[in-house]
Design a protein around this nucleic acid. Structure first.
Lengths: 138, 138
DNA sequence: CTATATGCAAACAATTTGCAGTGTT
DNA sequence: AACACTGCAAATTGTTTGCATATAG
């Protein structure tokens, strides 16, 4: 359960932290901005401050509980670290985020870096996509 | 020459625009933040404002003269659109930016999007890398 | 009881915008 | 001369920090 995640991360088990973790775990939307998380918690009558949400998310990131991404458009989004690395596709029409994995791409990335004398420490791949249209429906 | 680039883009040929374009074309550093560009112009005794640099870069981007990237770390960087699409590798130790092209990766991206019912409209791929170390030199 | 966390407000950093004056066509 | 463009300062947006109070262990 969430409590032990927090303990393992060396963080005190406090209400804001529990609630944020819970929200990330149970929410339909797996990628949320700090603002979205904050608003959601307010809706749920949790009395948190936006600053706390940012602080907690940053701590979670440092503890490896959460990943922070910078897609297009101002704010960072956060997602629970579920252990399975993946990249993202963003539907530019709906804002929907789709996760995908491609070991081929990962491998090519390593090869390319290697060819230049480097080792990949991290990478960010985001595809901005739009739905395929049926030809007769422009 | 730069003048015609501006005319073609439907922009009046003004000093700030010319100078910024010139800087992007001739500078050693191909990827620069607005701030860097601004400071460079001030050094060169050009009397521009930072706001103008931002405005001009945004117009250049809209006109397809320039590409804007969001690598890690606060500010956006801009590079001249030279027509040859490429992705980037950032040396996290030196900040150096290396460009690369991989048609294989591009193709895989299209395949993946297609498999999900989408068409890629744009993408952003950045590898964060560090130099390979010789084994005896930790 | 002590150290950490929290909420709020103020501080910041990057970027954008309003406006009166300036420069291009 | 008309209108687009500029510089400056003020406004915005996303995020961080200082501080007095509240809370977990």
């Amino acid at each position: 359960m969430e409590t032990s995640d927090l303990r393992n991360a060396g963080l005190k088990v406090t209400l804001p932290r529990l609630k944020i973790l819970e929200l990330l775990e149970t929410s339909e939307r797996r990628h949320m901005s700090a603002e979205e998380i904050y608003r959601r918690l307010i809706e749920l009558n949790e009395d948190v401050g936006l600053a706390t949400v940012y602080r907690v998310l940053t701590q979670f990131e440092a503890a490896g509980l959460v990943r922070r991404h910078h897609f297009e458009g101002g704010s960072a989004v956060f997602e629970l670290e579920r252990g399975h690395h993946h990249d993202h596709m963003v539907d530019v029409e709906s804002g929907k985020v789709i996760e995908f994995v491609s070991e081929e791409i990962e491998q090519l990335q390593r090869q390319i870096a290697d060819k230049h004398g480097y080792v990949v420490t991290d990478h960010s791949l985001v595809l901005y996509v739009k739905p395929k249209r049926n030809n007769h429906n422009p």
